[in-house]
Amino acid sequence: MNAGVTTKDPSRLRARPQAKLEGDLSTGLRPLGLSPRRDGLLYVPAGYRADRPAPLAVLLHGAGGSAHHGMALLEGLADAAGLLLLAPESRHPTWDIIADDAYGPDVAFLDSALGQLFRSAAVDPARIAIGGFSDGASYALSLGLTNGDLFTHVIAFSPGFMAPAEQRGQPRIFMSHGTQDQVLRIDPCSRRLAPLIRVAGYDLRYQESEGPHAVPQEIARDALRWFLPGAG
């Protein structure tokens, strides 16, 4: 599971998809069962088959949010796309790099959640995305670029910043922002980040919408079609 990853850097995820699975995985929504207080959710789409590795999206909620907020970003689109959804909850009201200026407990929790999933689900290693909204988008960008040898795609809806510990791999990036966002204003946020991402050598698709601090359904569908052409 950890082949090729020997570092114990707190910013690094060690879990990897496995060829040999343990047990069967039924479809539907369920809690992760990893924490009694702040846990997370897993959604297995209708039609999932263990002999057909499925794409996976890890979805991160905004500040003060929950796994349900993260899951809602793509949940209504998952069945048609055959998409596994994993929505962990931050250990505190927002993600560690944002709250404490350091990676740590949230990376460890996500690594445990991914390890549990990879032991029981057939996941396509060529189609693994991390995405989120608001603080979750900032964390998805930061953690996704740091772990670009695991994540093939990063989806950031209305991010505020990015703080990768390092650049690893070349994940493709989808980023969107509302021009009327009064929470994380577009000019110092996505309009500043987009050129930095391109200069760093990443393949970026950037979209703006005329709206507030939210994820319009058409933007969510665009992101899914970008991640999985032909879906949504």
Rank of each mutant, 00 (worst) to 15 (best):
A19D: 15
M1S: 12
Q167K: 04
A108P: 04
I219E: 13
L184H: 06
E22S: 12
P17Q: 14
D187M: 08
Q170S: 13
R221N: 00
L145K: 05
R127L: 10
D79F: 14
T179N: 06
P164Y: 12
E210Q: 05
M162H: 07
T27Q: 09
A194P: 02
A50S: 15
A54C: 04
L193C: 06
P164E: 09
H61Y: 05
I97F: 14
A126I: 03
I186L: 10
R225Q: 11
G169D: 11
G64R: 03
A129P: 03
D181T: 06
L193I: 11
S35I: 01
R185C: 01
G136R: 04
L34H: 03
V44E: 05
T27A: 12
L21R: 12
P216E: 08
K20M: 11
M162S: 07
G169L: 04
D106W: 00
D124L: 10
G23Q: 07
G62Y: 06
G28Q: 14
G64W: 03
P171D: 09
A194E: 15
H68K: 15
L141Y: 09
D106E: 12
Q182W: 08
I219Y: 14
G201I: 10
S176H: 05
E208C: 03
E210P: 00
D124Q: 11
A99H: 02
P53F: 15
W226T: 00
G131W: 13
G28N: 11
V107R: 04
G211V: 09
A15T: 00
G115M: 10
A113L: 03
E89T: 05
I130Y: 13
G40P: 01
L224F: 13
R16S: 05
E210R: 07
A87K: 03
Q18M: 15
A163F: 14
P171V: 00
R185Q: 03
L56F: 15
D24I: 01
A108K: 08
V5F: 14
S26G: 06
S66T: 00
P229F: 15
G169T: 11
D9G: 07
C189L: 11
W226A: 00
G62F: 04
G211H: 03
G33S: 09
V5M: 07
G131C: 09
M1W: 15
D100I: 00
P188R: 02
A194Q: 15
V215M: 13
C189E: 05
P195H: 09
P93N: 13
W95I: 02
G104N: 03
S90A: 10
V5E: 07
P216D: 04
T94C: 06
Q170T: 06
I128T: 02
D149L: 10
P45E: 08
P195Y: 11
L25V: 01
A163D: 02
Y139M: 11
L29W: 13
A200M: 14
V58H: 04
H177A: 06
L60S: 01
R91T: 00
P93M: 12
L73G: 00
A80V: 04
P55T: 01
V107H: 03
G232S: 14
D203R: 12
A78S: 08
A81Y: 10
S176Y: 06
T179W: 13
A163Q: 12
V215A: 05
G169A: 10
A50I: 15
A80M: 05
T152M: 14
P164N: 09
D203Q: 13
Y103M: 06
P45Q: 07
A223L: 11
A223N: 02
G148M: 04
R172D: 09
F109W: 13
